[in-house]
Design a protein around this nucleic acid. Sequence first.
DNA 1: GTCTATAATTCGATAGAC
DNA 2: GTCTATCGAATTATAGAC
Lengths: 200, 200
Amino acid sequence: MDAKERLIESARELLWDRGYVGMSPKAIQDRASAGQGSMYHHFENKEALALTAIERSTEELYQAAKNDLASPHTAIERIAAYLKRERQVLRGCRAGKLTQDPDVMANPKLRRPLQKMFTRLQQRLARVLEEGKMTGEFEPTMGAKDIAATVIAVLQGAYVLARAENSVEPFDRAIRGVLFLLEAQTPPLRPKRKGLRNRT
Amino acid sequence: MDAKERLIESARELLWDRGYVGMSPKAIQDRASAGQGSMYHHFENKEALALTAIERSTEELYQAAKNDLASPHTAIERIAAYLKRERQVLRGCRAGKLTQDPDVMANPKLRRPLQKMFTRLQQRLARVLEEGKMTGEFEPTMGAKDIAATVIAVLQGAYVLARAENSVEPFDRAIRGVLFLLEAQTPPLRPKRKGLRNRT
DNA sequence: GTCTATAATTCGATAGAC
DNA sequence: GTCTATCGAATTATAGAC
């Protein structure tokens, strides 16, 4: 791994753990085993390096979500797969944390990739929910865009609760809770029509 | 308002907007129109002042939630009142934001009031949900502690979405979504028994 | 490409006058 | 109680040698 690559990965880790305000060029260089000259040769400044790091992280997160939500199962199963995927809960969300960083939010360049990721994520999830309505998994009156926002919010908020209590328990409770509410949408008398997704 | 009080309020605002890592003693003093001597006379250091500020904020937030959840209505109405209360959405949550701050989370003294607040909030909400189960508003199989975590997570996550998109719309969608899911818990054939709460 | 030297500014605090 | 002076370290670079 060359110096430029190490600098990007170093910045990604530091943005995750300390945010943009809490990440100094010196810390980036130390973690990357690179000197100042190296860093300022590859990147104009801290902002440019952070932008590269944030773009990589948001793309990675979106692709992972897309993968969970595309698996060949029912809508509720795909959403459950997304919500129950293994995560570094106490470390928080790479993207969500940055939305709480004042210098990121005040900087349109740095905010854009975050905005894009959360918007696309909600759109994709809403599509899965619409499919679930078609197959009878969810109530026809359900607002797919609303529930998409709710589901993503639960995940983001679950990280907050876990960090506040320094435990994964509240995270797990929040996820179990929203899955219970979603599954309760399917009345027992109206059976899930698995496989209907694959009709011609 | 004396200097000490102004320093506390100044710190509260800066913690809200910039977090602990992004808040300098100089900034606190400027906002409070107080000198360095004044600040270091009233508080031992930045940490001590921040602790006082955080304790005041978490207590304020808990009392406000307690008030919403205690109003004389059904369980679902009280939860709706809590979720729909007017908030400075784009500014984020005074408490939730601090759980993403590395220096707050690494410091047990500063984390304690946050942990306490989120724990008590979940307990109080769980009690309201249990009451809702008694009155038939919610399914008897519903895990009150799970749903309590879910509801608070939605609120915290809704702030994240709003800030990411720089708009209150995703916030409102997330809240509408969770209220839809909660209200769907009450089957139309099993009418809400309003007022049952007040039985002897 | 990477290194070292330099630098203006800010950070977080201390000391002592008033 | 509040003010000003001072301080060592860290921050965010720039300059120029190699």
